[in-house]
Simulated scan of single mutants.
Amino acid sequence: MELRDKDTYRVELIENINFNSLTSLVALYQPILGRDALNFYFTISIEGTNQKSLENHQRLSKIMNMDIPTMERARKKCEQFYLMRTYFKVDNDKSTYIYVVNPPLSIQAFVKHDLYSRLLLKVLGQKQYELTIAKVCRAETNKNGYEDISDQFDKNLLANWDAENEVQFTKVQPSFNFTDHEKLNINFNYEELFDTTSTLVFPVEARTKENLQIIGEYATLYGLSASKVRILIGRCMDLPTSTLDVDKFKKLCSTQNPDAVVTSKDPYMLPPVSFLQARQHGVPVASVDRRLLEYLNLELKLPAEVVNVLVDYVLSVNQNRLTKRFVEAVASTWVRENVTTKEQAIAQTKKNPITKQVTRKKDILPAYYEKMKAGEEEVTETMTEEEKSELLRKLKELGE
């Protein structure tokens, strides 16, 4: 079957390359494999290290600067020396390859191999063969007295780099270097998200600073891990246009329970939803309370630790109720006081302690009660039986 650039592949690594393997590949395998085959082997080994989804061969062609026919010949060369095995499947005119990459023979095993060692001798000749074996089987050469004359990177390789190239490069570089103010509400592992999320699921075009900031803020608020965020992003991506439906992402985040409500040496450092859920003995947070936390954290820009102190404070003085108007009043005061740390928030709770007072509803007495004060007998003479009963009831309640 002829290889096409649109054909997809997945790499399965049996073992990572160590220094012994690297030496064996470069010094012993390269002369009999050729540089294209060695290039192919190194490239798919690296590509397979963190591969999470299928890729196409056009990518390999680009990064190796190798056309498809040359790539296929290189692969077969690696197969001949058992450096890899290839598995192939066609499904609805879609071809998929699985490359199982085997580790090379160690230096000692290669030298003792009846076929490989003889072939290396045939390719190199006796003099170079003996020199090669001596090099790989002895200690590093002493470089004292030698000058390092290694060639440097040629900057002219980027001589034609223009503004358009820079714009394109900037677009594909995910940026999460936020300002200090923007970082207040973000505690999220972006590196893990990028390492585990394929560009097929989360295209580079959608990894804008604005999108990444929203992702970080909502993941922090709701206590969501990178793995859960990856799933939510996949459900919110419009792949044909490479755009993220931000509103849908926010809505999905608001329906998620924290990945784990854990105990901590400092519970105030938990995500706000996790903190409140812990205060509720693990019972999920109601949607109305979630919206209130979202308002405090994302609209008023109060850091998570400050939100948690505020929630703890209000619950303690308000009979374990998060009354919206009461919470907003305290939060607005803290915003004006520029409260940005847990310590400052705790100080605020001690600065103006609130004592809740229970007030009784004042009853409104009938108009004739006021008239009765002027002359009770005259009033009672003109009262109906129903009015008398009502008056007696009110008087009784006032005396209780």
Rank of each mutant, 00 (worst) to 15 (best):
E2L: 07
R4M: 05
Y9I: 02
R10A: 12
I14K: 15
S21H: 15
S21G: 07
V26W: 00
L28Y: 02
L33Q: 01
R35N: 14
R35K: 10
D36N: 15
F40A: 13
F40P: 06
Y41S: 10
S45R: 05
I46D: 10
I46V: 11
N50P: 00
K52W: 01
S53M: 00
H57N: 14
H57E: 10
S61W: 04
R75T: 05
Q80G: 11
F81I: 11
R85D: 11
Y87W: 01
V90A: 03
D91K: 09
D93F: 11
S95Y: 03
I98T: 12
V101H: 05
P104G: 00
S106F: 03
D114C: 00
L115S: 14
L115C: 05
Y116T: 07
L119R: 07
E130F: 04
A134R: 06
V136Y: 07
N142I: 05
K143Q: 07
D148Q: 06
S150Q: 10
D151N: 03
Q152M: 11
F153K: 13
K155R: 14
W161M: 04
W161L: 11
A163Y: 00
V167M: 09
Q173R: 11
T179E: 08
D180G: 04
L184D: 04
I186M: 08
E192T: 04
T196S: 14
T199L: 13
L200S: 14
V201K: 12
F202V: 06
I214E: 08
I214M: 06
E217G: 08
Y222N: 13
K228Q: 06
K228L: 03
V229P: 03
R230M: 01
I233D: 09
G234C: 07
F249G: 05
K250R: 11
K251A: 12
S254D: 08
S254W: 05
Q256M: 04
P272L: 02
S274C: 08
A278H: 01
R279V: 03
Q280Y: 07
V288T: 15
V288C: 09
R290T: 13
R290H: 05
E299T: 12
L300K: 15
A304D: 11
V309Y: 08
V309Q: 10
V311P: 12
S316D: 14
R321K: 15
K324H: 12
K324M: 13
V327G: 10
V327S: 07
E328Q: 15
A331D: 07
V335Y: 06
N338C: 01
T341N: 10
A345H: 08
K351E: 09
P353I: 00
P353Q: 00
D363F: 01
D363W: 00
P366S: 03
A367V: 03
Y368C: 03
K371Y: 08
E377F: 10
M383N: 02
S389Q: 14
E397D: 12
